[in-house]
């Protein structure tokens, strides 16, 4: 079976490194983007199985990225997880309203990431 491909979107280099490490050790294939705009442009011509995105980012934030992706035919049904520091119901509702498939509450461990990804990877 082909490994699940994931795009992580985070403007923090250390967070990217952590995600890369955690996800690759769980056997996922990882691509990385530094903000929503870069991710959106990359996704215009590339495919991944799951997108994991931070919310607070320059240029295009996580919610904006999701909304734009949901408007494209290619990514309308793409599983997208948001990384959030808060797990309040209000935050979850916002993520869901923005079109997120699910969320991962920071800080995360490799196990938690893998569970969240498997829960949405088609």
């Amino acid at each position: 079976m082909k490994p699940t491909r994931i795009l992580t979107v985070d403007d923090s280099a250390s967070m990217r490194a952590l995600l890369l490490h955690a996800l690759t050790t769980q056997g996922f294939e990882v691509e990385q983007a530094e903000d929503g705009q870069q991710a959106f442009e990359w996704l215009a011509t590339n495919e991944v199985d799951v997108v994991i995105t931070d919310i607070n980012m320059p240029r295009l934030d996580g919610f904006g990225l999701i909304e734009q992706l949901r408007d494209t035919a290619r990514h309308a049904d793409r599983p997208i997880l948001v990384l959030t520091t808060e797990s309040s119901d209000e935050k979850k509702r916002r993520a869901r309203d923005a079109g997120a498939t699910g969320w991962i509450v920071k800080p995360f461990d490799a196990e938690k990431l893998a569970t969240a990804v498997r829960r949405v990877a088609h």
Partner: peptide, 18 residues
């Protein structure tokens, strides 16, 4: 304002992670 927020937020994220 957002840039300032993001900067501090990003340090917080890393601090938590490490």
């Amino acid at each position: 304002i957002n840039a300032i927020f993001r900067a501090v937020h990003s340090i917080k994220g890393g601090a938590g992670a490490f």
